[in-house]
């Protein structure tokens, strides 16, 4: 098992290819407090694939913004900078992991992204129920398992060992990750979100969606995504990488003020939006055309 150890995960993750230049620039502008929609539109326009993905996501019924846009400029003007940055980050990250790229045996990337889109849709529904920001919840839901897809695509040997451990011991895949690597996908996702300068609330949701009580964000996005992830697993939409349901945190329900009646309402609301997630994934994710993802495997 020693050959599977990632001696310096931070260094390994830094070596991964960065997001597209345009996305990086937009996220840098956001970090510097830029709020001019024209500036954002001008940068995003330089990457037509990214721009198309953003327009598709803004128009997606699953996101539920309700005001269709026809160009990246319209998209930039119809969203405030905070929401725009989240959507740019989500599209840029998703485009780093094409749905039909070379994947690990026993892991279906397309089904994985469908699970993420279902979690996003349900997170939006939970956020609406508790009067939080549905757009932030949506994009965090899309990216909540960023660490897992990173392990799958960039550390294939370790990921195969994780799948094997999961099968042999019939455990939750997160426990298998911790047993094989000594840390889990939330750690990888948090580091990568920081490395890629994704908005802080999104990074917090990625880091703490399995332990929302550890969140330091003012926004309860980690608790929202925690609940949404569990509901998506219960509805069996897509495949997160295993076939079990993690323990629902009572603390998350308490923080959100959710009882069973309200949770049922979230299911109804979110369930209505699930019909649009196939289209969302199909439109935002590119087909796998370029070279294989960079591998940063430790031998």
């Amino acid at each position: 098992m020693s050959s599977l150890v990632l001696r310096d995960p931070d260094r390994e993750l830094r070596q991964l290819a960065v997001l597209s230049h345009c996305a990086t620039r937009v996220l840098e502008l956001g970090g510097a407090g830029e709020d001019d929609p024209d500036t954002y539109a001008g940068v995003i326009r330089l990457d037509p694939g990214l721009a198309a993905s953003i327009v598709q996501m803004v128009n997606s019924p699953a996101l539920g913004l309700g005001h269709p846009v026809h160009s990246i400029r319209e998209a930039c003007f119809s969203l405030d900078a905070r929401k725009l940055l989240g959507i740019v980050g989500a599209c840029a990250v998703m485009r780093r992991f094409p749905r039909d790229g070379v994947g690990s045996r026993g892991f279906d990337r397309h089904a994985f992204w469908i699970h993420c889109a279902a979690t996003a849709t349900l997170a939006g529904a939970v956020a609406r129920e508790v009067d939080a920001e549905p757009e932030l919840a949506f994009v965090t839901g899309l990216l909540h398992d960023l660490g897992r897809i990173t392990l799958e695509s960039h550390f294939p040997r370790q990921f195969r060992a994780i799948l094997l451990y999961r099968e042999r011991h019939d455990v939750w895949i997160r426990d298998a990750e911790a047993a094989v690597l000594g840390f889990d996908h939330t750690v990888v996702g948090e580091r990568l979100a920081g490395h890629w300068q994704l908005p802080r609330d999104i990074a917090d949701g990625i880091a703490h969606h399995h332990q929302p009580e550890r969140s330091t964000s003012r926004h309860p996005v980690a608790a929202i995504v925690h609940v949404a992830d569990i509901l998506a697993r219960g509805l069996e939409v897509g495949n997160p990488g295993d076939d079990t349901i993690p323990l629902l945190s009572e603390e998350a329900l308490r923080v959100l003020g959710l009882n069973w009646t309200r949770l049922r309402r979230c299911l109804h609301r979110g369930g209505d939006g699930l019909s649009g997630i196939d289209a969302l994934v199909d439109r935002v994710l590119p087909r796998y055309e370029t070279s294989a993802p960079d591998r940063a495997e430790t031998h």
Binding site: G234, L235, I245, L247, W260, L263, R264, L267
Partner: peptide
């Protein structure tokens, strides 16, 4: 809690 969650998921589905 998980039994209750299972119940509402069953009803919903």
């Amino acid at each position: 809690g998980m039994l209750q969650l299972r119940r509402i998921l069953t009803e919903h589905r």
